[in-house]
């Protein structure tokens, strides 16, 4: 219970069931609250937000494909203006940031106050890389005279990517905040639930981009 001693974290109230649980990394000391049926990552309410956001985006994805069926040639010609390499690089940046964030949340659950902030900052660095590359991509398109009203493909392109970029910016602020928060000792299991919730939000940003990349850059 070195963590409890370091943090000044005392025994929980009797109704809070904190167990030592085996984490994926093999470490055994954890702040996680595990119920017999399993552990809901983060706050349960956050999952309502996540499924709401994901379903909203899924409806946009469906609309994109629906419009595409009425003008396949126009969509294909418009898609040719996008750089697959840029989209691929951004996908790899977000996948890598997700790895750092997943490991950061794991470190936070072990009360590791030196690794967690560093891993969150690495995730944030990838996020900033994504934002910069997206800006470069927009700049390139604008230079070629392409705008949101050039074709319905680009209405979806700018609509989806700007909406997603907003989530990246919010997620980046969360990553920065979590980097600071985990640098101080986590005091309660409820704090860890917030960290897990922030991590899940970031992973949602990643998985939304996975589908956006496939739809806008790869679908034929």
């Amino acid at each position: 219970m070195a963590f409890a001693i370091r943090s000044g974290w005392h025994r929980p109230a009797p109704d809070v069931d904190i167990e030592r649980s085996i984490l994926p990394s093999g470490d055994s000391l954890s702040l996680r609250r595990d119920s017999p049926g399993g552990h809901i990552p983060g706050e349960a309410g956050v999952w309502i937000l996540l499924f709401g956001e994901m379903t909203f985006f899924a409806l946009l994805f469906a609309s994109f494909l629906l419009y595409r069926t009425s003008d396949v040639a126009g969509f294909t010609a418009s898609q040719a203006h996008l750089s697959k390499a840029v989209g691929l690089t951004n996908t790899l940046l977000l996948l890598t940031s997700s790895l750092f964030v997943a490991k950061a949340v794991g470190a936070a659950s072990r009360g590791d106050t030196s690794s967690a902030p560093r891993l969150f900052r690495l995730g944030l660095a990838c996020a900033i890389g994504f934002i910069l590359l997206k800006g470069f991509e927009y700049h390139e398109l604008f230079d070629r005279g392409i705008a949101i009203d050039s074709h319905v493909f680009f209405s979806f392109y700018f609509g989806l990517t700007v909406l997603h970029l907003g989530h990246v910016v919010i997620g980046s602020i969360l990553l920065g905040a979590m980097s600071v928060a985990t640098g101080k000792m986590l005091a309660k299991p409820s704090h860890l639930a917030l960290i897990e919730s922030g991590g899940c939000f970031w992973h949602m940003v990643d998985l939304l981009w996975i589908v956006i990349f496939a739809l806008l850059y790869l679908v034929e």
Binding site: G37, G38, I40, S98, H203
Partner: peptide, 18 residues
């Protein structure tokens, strides 16, 4: 997407319903 949710989001350790 499924893999990110089950591994990075740790849904694999979540209750059956989730």
């Amino acid at each position: 997407v499924w893999m990110v949710m089950f591994t990075y989001m740790d849904v694999r350790g979540a209750p059956l319903a989730l």
